[in-house]
Every structure is written in structure tokens, then in C-alpha cells.
Amino acid sequence: MGEDLTYLSFRVIDKKGRAHILEITLDTNYPKCPPSISADVPHIFNLDWSGNSKLKDAVVQFEHHVDKLQDFWSTLDDIDRSLWVVDPKDPHFAMSYRQINIGNDCYITLSVNASDPRSLPQCRFLGSDANVNLLRRKWKINCKRWVKDRSFSENLTSILDIELPQPPEVRKDDRQTECGVCYAQYLPIDDELGSKSGSATDYTCENNNCSRAFHSVCLRDWLRSITTTRRSFDVLFGNCPYCSNPVAVKIINKK
């Protein structure tokens, strides 16, 4: 909340455990005039507002908007996991494009439709003129092969008639060493942490396009705060806070 009480932010957790921030700026004539809203989404919703509306109504409408975008973000997560994405390096929720290395020094930039993410995307090819012209012809001729129920990887392979290169392995030395939850490399020296006191990050997201490091203690506590987290015996199952890849953390008693 801003010091002048005209700016507020709300944190919303979606069904996949992704964290979204809704920023609200109040008009000088609030509540007669609707507040301004912004968020890291591909398109903002039209706020339904009346003289009797409250800030809670704006948050609820944002939650509904986020629910409608679940398939869009899941589709992009699948692209990030299965294809060699070269751009963006650090994707945000508002981004709807992915530039993919398809081999032979060629790239394809896909623009995913947020309203219909599994549909045939708009695309642009990058590379030598000869290769790009060939790829464009294949796309034009074979685009009818696109099937919504297939993954993007399967559809691209079918349309372009090529074997797509696998994402490169991320070297351990290149991975994030700071915890994605507490933003520190080492846990504090604290008797409450037991054997984990002062320890470095010990859990890494298995998604090569993410590879975010965590302290298992921090990730465990974060998963416990998410309503979609499942528990089986002494293991918590949920999703990475950054890429939504499945994660599992064992609950260890303090010693």
C-alpha cells in the first residue's frame, strides 16, 4: 500500500500456484470513479464498476480473469519445457511469444493467442533467405495439420517436417544459486532450522528453462501456503513458483 493510500497491490495465487500481483491506483473521486488497474497479464480485463463497488470486487474480477488464462500459461509452460526457447530469457506472465531454435541456424517466433492458446499461432521465421523461404512454404502447405489436442512440439514437427533440436542441458555451474523464495544463497544460522541451519540451496527445478534453486525448507514452507499443494505421507507435491513445473519436497523433522 502506498503512503498516500492511493496505491495498493494484491497478491493472487492461481490454481497452478502461480503468484500474480494486481496493482490498483485510486482515483481522487474514488469510489464514485473506478480505480486504475494493472497486472502482469497478456491483456487486462474491463473492470465492472458502480458507485457501490468495493476494492474486493476488483480483486474478485481479477481472479476470474486469471482463471480464464490458465490454459494460456500452461501452454507456454509446455513450450518452455519441451522446446529450445532462446527468447525471452526471463519470461513474464504478460508475454505471449516464444522464439524457438529449430535447427540449421533457423528460428521461429510464435505468438500464442491468449484467448485460444492451443490454436494455430502466428509465426515469423528467422534465418538465411533460402531456409526461411523453405520453412514458409512448408508452413503454408502443412498448417492444416495443426491439431489443438497435440503439443506445440508435435505440431511443429508435423508442419515443418523436421526433427526439432532438444533444449541444451543447463550446466550446474550456470544455475541459480540463490533461493527463489528467500533470495539468499545460505539459510541463516538458527537452531530452529536444525540440520538445515546455514545450509546452501539444495533443490533445483528440473525444468531446464527454469533451473531455479531453492532451499528445500523455503520451498516446503511456500508449498504449505498454497491451497493446491497435495501431501502424500511425508512428501508435498506442487508446482515451481517460477515455471509451474511439478515439484516435490520431503517433509523432514527438525533434528
Rank of each mutant, 00 (worst) to 15 (best):
D4Q: 10
V247F: 08
L164S: 06
D57G: 04
W49D: 03
V112T: 03
S115Y: 08
G51Q: 13
A114V: 03
W84K: 03
D4F: 01
A184Y: 15
F125E: 05
V247L: 05
E3D: 10
I37M: 01
G51F: 09
R137T: 14
L47S: 07
I251Q: 10
R136E: 13
H215M: 06
I102W: 07
N209S: 12
H215D: 03
L22G: 08
R231D: 08
P88Q: 02
D27Y: 02
T157C: 11
P91I: 00
H20A: 09
L193P: 00
S115A: 14
L55H: 08
Y203M: 02
H215Q: 10
A58C: 04
D105T: 03
V249C: 07
R220N: 13
T109I: 05
H20S: 06
A39R: 04
D40E: 11
G17W: 04
D234C: 04
A248E: 09
R81K: 14
H92M: 13
P246T: 07
K172A: 15
C33W: 12
V132Y: 02
S232Y: 14
E192V: 08
I102M: 04
A200F: 10
P246N: 11
S96H: 12
S74P: 09
A19C: 11
D4H: 06
V41F: 00
Y203S: 00
T228W: 06
D48I: 14
K56W: 07
L164I: 12
T75A: 15
H65V: 08
C106K: 10
V12S: 01
F93H: 13
Q185P: 00
R136P: 00
K56I: 12
F125Q: 07
R18F: 09
N245V: 11
L47T: 00
V249S: 01
S82N: 01
N113D: 15
E169A: 14
Y7Q: 14
I102N: 08
E154Y: 03
S9N: 12
N245A: 14
M1P: 07
C182T: 00
T227Y: 13
W222S: 02
A213I: 08
E3G: 03
D48G: 12
G180T: 01
L135S: 04
I251S: 03
P34C: 11
S115P: 00
R136W: 01
S111D: 09
I141T: 12
R212T: 15
C243H: 02
F72R: 02
I162Q: 07
